[in-house]
Write a protein that binds this DNA or RNA. Structure first.
Lengths: 225, 225
DNA sequence: CTCTATAATCTGTCTAACAGATTTTAAGCC
DNA sequence: GGCTTAAAATCTGTTAGACAGATTATAGAG
């Protein structure tokens, strides 16, 4: 889906209304039918956008009453979301340093045999993808998710998945750039992942945390030519 | 909205299909019309659920082709989401220890005058709410968001907002429980927030990080009577 | 076997109607 | 004037059907 859907536009426009009208938490939004009229779309499209706003915690719908502001989107968030041109690498790396380092540490401590097998499988998939000429960013993402999952705490995966968009772009760029460099760059990337997995396998929390932190640091450095 | 909507049920059921059919990334889901028939709902409801699945990065819709698995929801995530009875406090607290501690540290380092004013305003709103008999969990959430915002890095807010559902429940419970205790418990909660804000105001990163960590630790303890 | 055209299938959007919930308004009573 | 009650208006949640544009599958011709 290369073209944005109308409901994406409506989502952004409703966020704009909340901000431009300076609506406080608890304030009532215009009715669905009214919004549809304002934006020149059908009510079904408005509902789709509102459903996502509600799911994102920004609004809350009460049957018979209307939709209400539940929490205000931040100014920076709204600036961040519609624009894909902003340099986002520094942003998510900073969060990933603390989040994924801790996740690796906990994964090394808590992983079950099954979770370890899942991580190992993800490692194999990533290896195969990196050594092929196919895209490998999905496999890269998947391994990181499996490590977060091996913490045994779904909140780590939730927080990590919230950064999915940025992390996906970073990983795609990371793989592409590494492929445009001498072959040992890919081998280095692969080894970094292996070192993380090995520390988790060995149930070495400090080793896993350090390996993850190193990988993220090096991954970031690889993006700056 | 105390009752779950049909689209919430359909969301969970589609996740179940992905898991029970062991659909890999790239696998095609049944068509919207087919899903509507399977679940005994209208197609509009299926679309609403699919829109959220796509927004959550789990599926991807291609016009004319169908909806495809984009990333697999983790087993734990799907167990976590439909059930509200699981003890979720340990989960998000663990992530919040690393995420919000780092956010407080960075907020103390980087906050602008305007961001500080925003944080102070949030503090006043929380004080007023806690000293009234009205709900205060929204204000509690808002202050924490403003601190994440003051890091100057939207990724912190994105990750924090991903835990919105759990954190909201925790904060609501935290306020309710504190109100059922002697009055000094509310005062303590208030002072903890003030200490975080004071350290950020004073541009004391280590102080802010410690105060936040202490607050989260105490907040967690208050939930265990 | 390959290419082209057509048919079938699919998502995206619109319209209209109805059900159930909430809010507003109006009327009646004290 | 204030309070209560009932009716009307308004709202979200859902269903159903139609059509547009995109993709996939199939059939026929060379």
């Amino acid at each position: 889906m290369s073209q944005a859907r109308l409901s994406d536009h409506v989502y952004a426009q409703i966020v704009d209304i909340i901000k431009s009208d300076d609506l406080e938490v608890g304030a009532r939004l215009p009715a669905e039918a009214r919004l549809a009229e304002m934006f020149g779309v059908s009510r079904a499209i408005v509902r789709e956008a509102l459903m996502r706003l509600a799911s994102d915690g920004i609004t809350e719908a009460r049957r018979g009453a209307g939709s209400f502001v539940k929490s205000r989107p931040s100014d920076r968030l709204s600036m961040f979301m519609p624009s894909t041109e902003l340099p986002t690498t520094l942003g998510s790396y900073e969060v990933r340093f603390v989040l994924e380092t801790e996740a690796a540490r906990l994964a090394a401590t808590r992983r079950t045999v099954q979770e370890m097998a899942y991580v190992e499988e993800g490692m194999e998939m990533l290896r195969a993808a990196l050594l092929s000429s196919e895209p490998a960013h999905v496999e890269d993402m998947e391994l990181h998710r499996r490590i977060a999952e091996a913490t045994g705490n779904p909140a780590f995966l939730i927080a990590f998945d919230a950064l999915h968009g940025d992390v996906d772009k970073i990983m795609r760029a990371g793989v592409d750039i590494s492929r445009s460099r001498p072959p040992d760059v890919i081998a280095t990337m692969l080894r970094e992942h292996e070192q993380i997995v090995a520390a988790i396998r060995a149930q070495d929390p400090e080793g896993a945390a350090l390996a993850m932190r190193w990988h993220l640091w090096e991954g970031r450095r690889r993006l700056m030519p």
